[in-house]
């Protein structure tokens, strides 16, 4: 564990808590893409299959349980409890265009052609594009609530901090995982235009509204 990864995990934790607070306080899931949350649930389920078979640390287990629990709770809020406020018309990204190529790539490019390894690789690749339905939804509605912008900023920062973690691990431990790093770079790049909007607008108290 190093400071970059700890900050990354805390940023990820903050993103999930911000999202839950937004939903619970406003009793609304307006502007939130249910499809992205389903993709995140798939990512966590596929990645944490070893939750019961390999124990790494209390911290690792607690975080995995929290991430899996909250993402399914979020899906429950979107598609059941606050279903009336779910904007399915704008949440129209075709996730099959993500899952099929990512699934195929996981079969072709992985560290070892073994079931658990392929599933893990699939979760890494899927996570790098899982935010697309959410960003697509914001581009369709043309705006994002400020709290949603904070959620996305924290979520985008988490993987950016993981990139720092991998740089640190490369120089400190000589460890390097090309698959995780490449997917992490792609994932962070997808947030760049949002980061730009966030820093130039939200930080100055304005709302994010696309092509103004």
């Amino acid at each position: 564990m190093n400071i970059f990864r700890l900050c990354g995990d805390m940023s990820h934790l903050a993103a999930i808590i911000i999202l839950l607070l937004k939903m619970w306080k406003t009793r609304s899931v307006a502007g939130i893409s249910g499809k992205s949350q389903i993709l995140f649930a798939t990512v966590f389920t596929a990645r944490y299959l070893d939750l019961f078979t390999s124990f790494i640390s209390i911290y690792n287990t607690c975080m995995k349980v929290f991430f899996i629990g909250t993402v399914y709770f979020t899906i429950y809020l979107i598609y059941m409890k606050f279903k009336a406020t779910y904007d399915s018309n704008h949440d129209s990204f075709r996730v099959e265009f993500l899952i099929v190529p990512v699934g195929g790539l996981a079969f072709l490019v992985n560290h070892e052609f073994a079931p658990l390894e392929i599933i893990w690789t699939f979760s890494i690749y899927l996570e790098s594009v899982a935010i697309l339905p959410q960003l697509f939804m914001i581009s369709k509605t043309g705006e994002a609530e400020t709290i949603t912008s904070h959620y996305l900023f924290a979520l985008g920062s988490y993987r950016a901090l993981y990139l720092c973690n991998w740089i640190y691990r490369y120089y400190a431990e000589g460890f390097f995982d090309l698959i995780a790093v490449v997917a992490g770079v792609v994932q962070t790049i997808l947030y760049c235009d949002f980061f730009y909007l966030y820093i130039t607008k939200v930080m100055k108290g304005k709302k994010i509204s696309l092509p103004a």
């Binding site: 070893d50 390999s54 995780a180």
Partner: peptide, 10 residues
């Protein structure tokens, strides 16, 4: 050294 892998990451 611990078996180096990304699996110890979240």
């Amino acid at each position: 050294a611990t078996e180096q892998s990304s699996k110890d990451e979240l």
